[in-house]
């Protein structure tokens, strides 16, 4: 059976309630925007396949509820994720300050080598801005995380953010594979079986290498 992808990355969106995590995801997965705010309950996910350097990469993006009462449900999903988007709202100072708490949360619950990225969302609302881009950059540098300001409404930098995170994860994974080469590749999500099946020669060539 032909596989539809080369890599599967699990990504997670976290941040305070109302910063626009669902909107970002909606923009990325459906390329649409809905002004009305419906708060996420518990957890949900969307899947989008992107093309990255000629590889089909499937992104399973988990959208979590920002509200405190769902914290126990959502933290369970930290462990399996390979990339985490930390989202704050540039018009909401508190959500920016909480990014530190969210990072602590990641450190406690996620695997150590998870790729992270900070998103300052709602950058279209310049008149209501409370957090400058510089402060965002500053924070990102402090934690050695990439940062970008986005607007789900104007479709600004959303694609860029996900592609960047995905590319970083892919690079990290390939690096790890090289390091462990020629030992059986780990990482679990690169589809060895798949490749063998699609191209039996590759399996044979691997045998001869062994």
């Amino acid at each position: 059976m032909a596989k539809t992808y080369d890599y599967l990355f699990k990504l997670l969106l976290i941040g305070d309630s109302g910063v626009g995590k669902t909107s970002i995801l909606f923009r990325f997965s459906e390329d649409a925007f809905n002004i009305s705010f419906i708060s996420t309950i518990g957890i949900d996910f969307k899947i989008r396949t992107i093309d990255l350097d000629g590889k089909k990469v499937k992104l399973q993006i988990w959208d979590t509820a920002g509200q405190e009462r769902f914290r126990t449900i959502t933290t369970a999903y930290y462990r399996g994720s390979m990339g985490i988007m930390l989202v704050y709202d540039v018009t909401n100072e508190k959500s920016f300050e909480n990014i530190k708490n969210w990072i602590r949360n990641i450190e406690e619950n996620a695997s150590a080598d998870v790729e992270k990225m900070i998103l300052g969302n709602k950058c279209d609302l310049d008149s209501k801005r409370q957090v400058s881009k510089e402060r965002g950059e500053q924070l990102a540098i402090e934690y050695q995380i990439k940062f970008v300001e986005t607007s789900a409404k104007d479709s600004l930098n959303v694609e860029y953010a996900f592609f960047t995170l995905a590319r970083d994860i892919k690079a990290k994974m390939e690096k790890k594979q090289e390091a462990s080469n020629p030992a059986p590749r780990t990482g679990g999500h690169q589809l060895r079986a798949n490749e063998q099946q699609r191209k039996p020669t590759s399996w044979l060539s691997r045998c001869s290498l062994l």
Binding site: M1, F45, I47, K58, A193, N194
Partner: peptide, 16 residues
């Protein structure tokens, strides 16, 4: 649909 999405992620190695 969600179940389908999960099952689309299936990556069995049929010669395991």
């Amino acid at each position: 649909k969600k179940v389908d999405e999960f099952l689309d992620l299936e990556n069995y190695d049929w010669l395991l």
